[in-house]
């Protein structure tokens, strides 16, 4: 009963927060774009030659001469109705572009999120268990090196080694040349996913592994592990019984908090591998002044990161029995 009320309260609270966040984010992005030297008409017509009359029509259509407040309200009003406008560079509704692109990115992010999480956790547990040995040192050095590696640099290296030099994977472009999008096989698509996902995973491993290692060392030096040893528990059993149990929750929480870095990494990696995801669309929209799309992407990415944080919060408040108890007694 109590839990139900609490969860309802939690969700209500989160929704309110999300709404206020979105309002602020939209407004700030809108203003930034408004005062940057972006010309939507130029963006739309590109290099096409157009008559002055046509141009005036377009200016009218894009509202170049309407005051910014009004423009924002117009846009916000439409957005509330689910209409985010037409993307200038893709010439289709922003919602469609985002749906397609975000799905592609989501697959990429989910794959690397899971892979880096699991691998990082395992490496962290091994390093923590073998603290001070060469295994631990190797894992630590690997993590430090990775933590200091720029994403795009690692992406380029992988691209050069595996695609250019070894030729195992295609270079860029999600769809093979000469094949229409509908005819892309699962394998084609999968092959294109591997390198970007690998790049993101390798980078994501560092943080979670180092964190898990620290946490496990802390747990292993705790009083309750000492007592478990005194009761005859030892070795791997002990780590599985007490270590994993106490490290998993904070590690999973951290992984959810990493959504913002994951998204940032995706933008760069998609660029290098020409992976047709939301990150690539964001860069294109920015470079080519596609305001409606840019705003749409800002909203989606804000929601995405917010979602990660909300889950981390949820775990913290509802899964950890200690916190659960504390709250109940207040």
């Amino acid at each position: 009963m109590l839990d139900k009320d609490k969860i309802a309260g939690f969700i209500g609270n989160k929704i309110l927060r999300l709404l206020s966040l979105l309002i602020v984010v939209c407004f700030v992005s809108f203003m930034l774009i408004q005062y940057s030297p972006i010309d939507p008409v130029r963006a739309y017509i590109g290099e096409m030659p157009v008559s002055a009359e046509h141009k005036a029509n377009l200016e009218e259509y894009w509202g170049v001469n309407t005051p910014p407040q009004e423009k924002f309200l117009n846009w916000a009003g439409d957005a509330l109705k689910g209409n985010f406008g037409i993307s200038l560079i893709y010439r289709m509704p922003v919602t469609d572009v985002i749906k397609e692109r975000f799905t592609a990115s989501l697959v990429l992010m989910a794959a690397s999120w899971l892979f880096s999480g699991i691998l990082g956790f395992i490496l962290g547990i091994i390093a923590g268990m073998k603290k001070g040995t060469w295994i631990d040192k190797t894992i630590k050095i690997y993590c430090y090196v990775l933590a200091a590696t720029p994403t795009f640099w690692l992406a380029l290296i992988l691209l050069m080694v595996f695609s250019v030099y070894l030729g195992w994977f295609p270079i860029g472009l999600s769809v093979p040349i000469g094949v229409t999008a509908e005819n892309v096989t699962f394998l084609d698509w999968f092959l294109r996913l591997i390198l970007p996902a690998l790049t993101l995973s390798l980078l994501g491993v560092a943080q979670i592994a180092l964190f898990t290692r620290e946490k496990l060392i802390e747990v292993l030096s705790s009083d309750y592990v000492l007592f478990a040893k005194a009761r005859g528990e030892k070795g791997l059993d002990l780590v599985l019984r007490h270590g994993i149990r106490n490290v998993a929750l904070p590690a999973i929480t951290l992984q959810f908090l990493g959504f913002s870095e994951l998204f940032g990494g995706t933008v760069l990696v998609e660029q290098v591998f020409s992976y047709p995801g939301i990150g690539q669309a964001a860069v294109a929209a920015g470079l080519r002044s596609d305001v409606p799309l840019l705003l749409g992407i800002v909203i989606v990415s804000a929601c995405f990161v917010f979602f990660g944080n909300a889950i981390a919060d949820l775990i913290y408040q509802f899964v950890d029995p200690r916190i659960k108890q504390q709250e109940a007694s207040i």
């Binding site: 705790s222 009083d223 309750y224 000492l226 007592f227 478990a228 005194a230 009761r231 019984r241 007490h242 149990r245 106490n246 929750l249 950890d320 029995p321 200690r322």
Partner: peptide
């Protein structure tokens, strides 16, 4: 067998 001092000697999540 050891009988420890306080609740700190029990695994908080078990």
């Amino acid at each position: 067998a050891l009988v420890p001092q306080s609740t700190n000697y029990l695994d908080p999540l078990m």
